[in-house]
Structure formats: C-alpha cells, structure tokens
Computed example of a mutant assay.
Amino acid sequence: MMRSPGEAAARHYIAEREAKRVLIQDIPRHTSCRAGQGGYAQYAGWRQIDGHALILLKTNEAEISVMPVDAVTLARVKRLKLGSEVIFNADGTVRKKGRSL
C-alpha cells in the first residue's frame, strides 16, 4: 500500500521520538493518527519534517498523535497556544473546541 509523503514524514518523526524515548523516559509515546481516529485532544505543537507539516496532539491516553496536515491547516493551528483543546479527525481537520479555526 502506497503512503502519502506526509504519512512517511510522520512515521519518520515517530520513529525518531520513540528511539529517544528509550533513553529519556519522560518523552510520551508517539503514534500516528489512525483511520477513523478523531475526538478531543490538546494542541502540543507542530513540526516540519522533510518539508511536510505535522501537528502534535496530546490525547486522553497521554500519547502524542502525529498528524500530517496541509500548509493552510498548519497556518491556522500555529496561532493556538500549547495546551489548547481542539477537535480533530483523521482526514486532517483540526479546529479549536467550540469554534472553527
């Protein structure tokens, strides 16, 4: 199955973080956003990996979900404060809880 470049960048970032988590136990587990996954989370930042934008979302399980997004979504999300509650779904839609971004 062919993955998008954004998904490949997310997997690269997750592998890097998981390798560091072995050495530094305070780093939360990082996972990719799975098909059908969505809900509420806290905005935990963003990263640019190999030219692809990734948003980090802290879920209720205290994991970090890594979601590839387009440039427009990244520009809107960058305005959020860390820890802001957001609603997200697996197709890359992220909005602030209670209103759209």
Rank of each mutant, 00 (worst) to 15 (best):
T73W: 01
P5D: 15
V66G: 09
L57K: 03
S100A: 07
Q37I: 02
W46T: 09
E16W: 04
V72K: 14
C33L: 13
G45E: 08
M67D: 12
G39N: 05
A35Q: 14
V72W: 08
Y40I: 08
N60G: 15
E63M: 12
R76I: 00
V22T: 12
A41N: 06
V69G: 04
Y13V: 03
G36H: 03
R79I: 01
D50C: 03
S32N: 05
R11S: 03
A8R: 14
A8K: 12
D70Y: 09
G36D: 00
V72S: 09
R21N: 00
L54Y: 11
L54A: 03
Y13W: 15
I87T: 11
L57C: 12
A10G: 02
R79D: 13
A10M: 10
V69Q: 08
R47F: 04
A53S: 15
P68D: 07
K81G: 13
I27L: 00
R79H: 05
A53T: 02
E18M: 06
A15I: 01
K78P: 02
D50F: 07
H12S: 12
P68Y: 06
D70Q: 14
I49D: 07
C33S: 12
G51S: 00
L57G: 10
I64C: 10
Y43Q: 02
D26T: 15
I64G: 09
K81F: 06
Y43E: 12
T59R: 09
R76F: 08
V72M: 10
Y43K: 01
N60T: 00
Q25H: 09
M67E: 03
R79T: 14
V94N: 02
L80V: 04
G36K: 11
F88Q: 03
A53H: 11
Y43I: 08
E16S: 08
D50P: 04
R47I: 00
D91H: 09
I55S: 07
V66K: 05
K78D: 08
K81E: 15
S65M: 08
G45A: 12
P68A: 13
G39E: 05
A90K: 10
R76A: 13
G38M: 03
L82Q: 06
G83V: 09
L23V: 02
G92P: 07
I55Q: 13
R95H: 09
V69F: 09
R99L: 04
I64V: 15
H30W: 10
R76C: 04
G83C: 07
W46L: 11
